[in-house]
Computed example of a mutant assay.
Amino acid sequence: MDDRTDAQGDPVGANEFFAPAMEPASREGWRYRLFRLMFHHETRGERNFDLALIAAIVASVLVVLLDSDPAIKARWHAPLYVAEWAFTLLFAVEYAARLWTVRRPLRYARSFLGIVDLLAIVPTFLSLLFPASTSLTVVRILRLLRIFRILKLVKYSDEAGLLTQALIRSRRKILIFVLTLLTIAVIFGALMYVVEGPAHGFDSIPTGMYWAVVTMATVGYGDLSPATGLGRFLTSALIIIGYSIIVVPTGIYTSELARSMRSRGRVQVRCPQCSLGEHEEDAWFCRKCGHALPFRD
């Protein structure tokens, strides 16, 4: 694991996930002070700025939530609409200021938090053309991830990286599993279309596939149900299949996660005697044959 830290005291690897370490466009003047205010959190003023930003994010999300309620919207739509645009303009100015104060604006714009910052303001402007898109501004809640930096919790993102790596390594097995599920859904959807037919709500094969997916997931909405004996038999068989395979992706992921955890704290160095290529960080001798490792000579 990389124990290096950046200028803010956060682990380098973890920092890259939330936002790459940015360099100021200027090292003097109020432009640099603005950079420090928005990208650092050591002084009281910098922390107060972050806390004020978090309060504004929470308030803006609450405005969107309240405006979605018909009763509240009928009475308070105008003030809520003004507040929403005020927050949007505030975040737009902040986003522009962040781009202006960093040396490589495109790098920040392409970072995770940079993309989230942009998505936080786009829906409100899109609502001028598509009114329903204003509800998408709840994506601003993702901006609260900045609290990880304020509370010095970025170091724990290494654990999230471990989970992500395990998921990536198991992607082929999971893909095969998903394709198998789709195949089963197509087959049973077609069977139910033939057995039950439009008279019982199965008016197409895609409708049967929808029923098959819901049944395998053991959700059972009840909007479609078989009426014939054969249809009920197929339903029972599919439910048993669903219970049988529902643990498969969990097992695949858990296996990869266990392998990832076993490999933590190890280094890639090949033993000259038995060619074993992975050893503990503090190992002086091969854990298989006992031969001295080359980097310990």
Rank of each mutant, 00 (worst) to 15 (best):
residue 175 L to M: 04
residue 56 A to E: 09
residue 184 I to Q: 02
residue 222 G to H: 00
residue 41 H to S: 08
residue 207 T to Q: 05
residue 253 Y to W: 12
residue 130 F to R: 14
residue 15 N to F: 10
residue 42 E to R: 06
residue 5 T to N: 07
residue 254 T to L: 08
residue 98 R to Q: 12
residue 52 A to R: 06
residue 249 P to H: 03
residue 193 Y to I: 03
residue 101 T to Q: 01
residue 234 L to S: 01
residue 151 L to D: 06
residue 181 L to F: 00
residue 267 V to D: 03
residue 136 L to R: 05
residue 207 T to M: 07
residue 71 A to D: 15
residue 278 E to A: 14
residue 47 R to T: 01
residue 156 Y to I: 08
residue 89 L to F: 12
residue 54 I to V: 11
residue 86 A to E: 05
residue 73 K to N: 13
residue 164 T to I: 11
residue 159 E to C: 11
residue 58 V to R: 02
residue 212 A to Y: 00
residue 244 S to Q: 06
residue 163 L to M: 14
residue 268 Q to I: 13
residue 29 G to P: 09
residue 140 R to E: 08
residue 263 S to N: 13
residue 244 S to E: 05
residue 74 A to V: 07
residue 68 S to H: 10
residue 271 C to N: 01
residue 20 P to I: 04
residue 84 E to N: 15
residue 47 R to N: 12
residue 76 W to S: 08
residue 46 E to Y: 01
residue 32 Y to A: 10
residue 251 G to Q: 03
residue 79 P to N: 09
residue 98 R to M: 02
residue 150 I to H: 03
residue 164 T to G: 14
residue 13 G to S: 12
residue 78 A to P: 00
residue 165 Q to N: 04
residue 34 L to D: 11
residue 171 R to I: 07
residue 197 G to Q: 00
residue 40 H to G: 00
residue 108 Y to H: 12
residue 128 L to A: 15
residue 11 P to G: 00
residue 90 L to V: 04
residue 246 I to D: 11
residue 152 K to M: 12
residue 84 E to L: 11
residue 144 L to P: 02
residue 264 R to A: 12
residue 177 F to C: 06
residue 130 F to A: 13
residue 158 D to C: 09
residue 119 L to M: 13
residue 204 S to D: 04
residue 130 F to T: 10
residue 113 L to S: 01
residue 179 L to K: 06
residue 6 D to C: 08
residue 286 C to I: 05
residue 202 F to I: 04
residue 251 G to F: 04
residue 185 A to V: 03
residue 224 L to V: 06
residue 253 Y to I: 08
residue 85 W to I: 03
residue 102 V to Q: 01
residue 127 S to W: 13
residue 284 W to D: 15
residue 251 G to Y: 03
residue 267 V to H: 02
residue 19 A to S: 11
